[in-house]
Design a protein around this nucleic acid. Sequence first.
DNA 1: CATGAATGAGTGTTCATTCAT
DNA 2: CATGAATGAACACTCATTCAT
Lengths: 214, 214, 214, 214
Amino acid sequence: MSEISTPQKHERRKQHRPGELLEAALDLFVEKGFAATRAEEVAARAGVSKGTLFLYFQSKEELFKAVVRENVVKPVSEGVEEVANFKGSCGQLLKYLMLEWWRRYGSTKASGISKMIISEANNFPELAAFYQAEVIMPAVSLLQGVLERGRSQGEFKNFNTEQTAMAVIAPMLFLIMSKHSSALCHSGSKLMKPEDFIAQHAELIVRGLSVENA
Amino acid sequence: MSEISTPQKHERRKQHRPGELLEAALDLFVEKGFAATRAEEVAARAGVSKGTLFLYFQSKEELFKAVVRENVVKPVSEGVEEVANFKGSCGQLLKYLMLEWWRRYGSTKASGISKMIISEANNFPELAAFYQAEVIMPAVSLLQGVLERGRSQGEFKNFNTEQTAMAVIAPMLFLIMSKHSSALCHSGSKLMKPEDFIAQHAELIVRGLSVENA
Amino acid sequence: MSEISTPQKHERRKQHRPGELLEAALDLFVEKGFAATRAEEVAARAGVSKGTLFLYFQSKEELFKAVVRENVVKPVSEGVEEVANFKGSCGQLLKYLMLEWWRRYGSTKASGISKMIISEANNFPELAAFYQAEVIMPAVSLLQGVLERGRSQGEFKNFNTEQTAMAVIAPMLFLIMSKHSSALCHSGSKLMKPEDFIAQHAELIVRGLSVENA
Amino acid sequence: MSEISTPQKHERRKQHRPGELLEAALDLFVEKGFAATRAEEVAARAGVSKGTLFLYFQSKEELFKAVVRENVVKPVSEGVEEVANFKGSCGQLLKYLMLEWWRRYGSTKASGISKMIISEANNFPELAAFYQAEVIMPAVSLLQGVLERGRSQGEFKNFNTEQTAMAVIAPMLFLIMSKHSSALCHSGSKLMKPEDFIAQHAELIVRGLSVENA
DNA sequence: CATGAATGAGTGTTCATTCAT
DNA sequence: CATGAATGAACACTCATTCAT
């Protein structure tokens, strides 16, 4: 029975390394930001040496991109599918989308990297472009699609698509910044539940979109 | 008579040194953030040597604190007076407040240090507490006062005060972040004018607050 | 009968491993020099893993020495025989020798390791001594023999043996350095064919050696 | 008399720093090559810290270029002037040029950086290009000018300009390589004086250039 | 025998801070 | 007061070498 090769220690560890590093990197990027996170610290938190980190990721920037792909791109694309399959009114869809995004992304540790990019994009243009292309654009497109669907079905009226998309995203980003910045987190989080804030905001927006004269 | 010093040009410059450094630091902190701003660059922009900067400010962090103290408190307290003196409905007041805040603070360079503090607060706990106490709390109190006034006058109904205050602040912060982060500025700024966004949002909120059943 | 192992494909490869590594190392040492050649790249080009390289060679330096031993000694000793058997004048012999050396060694990839040793000898004293003993000395002796034969036969006159030997070697080394250094190859190689340069130089030397008064 | 400010310690050192660093860098580049010379070691040899080196030179590569400009470009351009002013036959000029170049450059420590570039050009293309443009090209042009002058004056005949220029440079480079590579230096230098080698070679070339039929 | 995951010392470069002038 | 030369700790990234499998 020892003949059937189960993965040995060496082997098993190897397979888990990237994931462990990604997790450590997520923690630290969220905690300290990109520039202030030292590669060696990421490695240490994952229980490996500095050299090992660079065995799996070409550079700190690539490590970061991998973290983004793993933690931010995924939730966005999940939203795309759900929107396509959603049965119900566009108002319901919009509310559902906002609440689910918060539940699945905004309220998680992963949302900290959105805060991080917004904070440091100016100093790392390449990362900004990456985030722009992989996260912002898809998310905005998704939302505008929903709004346009609502308009063509006569459900939503008298609104500017781009502005309204921003209005939907704004409270999400506000909560994310609040959650991850010690300059804001003590004001918002204790006073109310974020889901309630989102729900209220969603209600407000849908109401506004449904009103006859703008 | 020589006792009463008539300030010479050289003398005046000397006395203005800290102010010039503060201004240079504001520019650079807004542009690059705290960590990425080099002390030498600040000194150079102020027209003095690196050594001189450390003559007036014990450390880069002290310089940072001085910049925050100088630029962040004033705009908030101005709002307090105007609210007290405002003649008109609470809905009008709320809209006025939001637009004026944007005009006088959000749209200026100074708002960049709000972005900067939110971005880097985690790495500078003292600043986070300072910003919380001096900026966030007063602003929130002011807003909640307006909302409560509206409720007691029967103008606003069916709302949670804290949540609604957040809903008012959120678009401001969203715009400030957008304005100062390349991760967001390209999506927002070209699509619409910030004042329009604020106006639309104010309208949405006031409408929502005025609706009979929530 | 199973005792006499018919080399299987896998078996043959195993036995050829060192040779393949040596060849890969030759290529890379010639291309990049010793210090800039990475062990992993050598292994990869030989189609084995990094660990395997260190199975056959204790260290990168040992690999280097093996490459030198394998590639540098042979071409020199071949010249010795031919000189002994040559029929014709010493002038003809000298010209023949110079052209053949270029053809059989200088113009080949192998000459790159001469360039490499000359370039990096200072950082690897053992190799310098080895090259000195195994390559330089025999080559110089061979040449001086030819020159002395020419003098004793009355064909060559009025020359210093050591200096003239150097004069014969100099253009060879010059061409080898030119061929393998981008600092020189663009000036030399496009302007003329190396063989022409050698031929001209040989002609010049033989003419000079044959002139009555120096 | 103490009123007249003589440079103080701090000041005097500053003025000498670049020179001291350049000298230390020359020593080490010649001794170990570009890649193997550590910036910190250069600084240490100049008696300063690593940081100070980068105060005066943007990068190791810039340091190197400065060394080249200081030690290699200068001797070449000196040659240009002298050629312009030379009174005498082109044969005399050519011999003079070769001997002087050896005396003023080849025989000095500075020539080691020519060896160094030839050795490492492949790994540092930018340096190779720099050396090509600043050193090789001017030197070759200078030589070809002399040869053409000789031809137009009827003194030199039946030769290819490029090839002959190479033939003039070759022994110089050969001696430089010999002098600075432990793989060669023990063979050449003890057997003859380099000046004699150069003289003999110069004689050989001039004789060849002056012969009626090639 | 062969692998390739893991290591950690080493390198060029930056920058806040100090201090002699 | 003001300067700017000097420092040295820090950091991302590399690579020869080892060793468990």
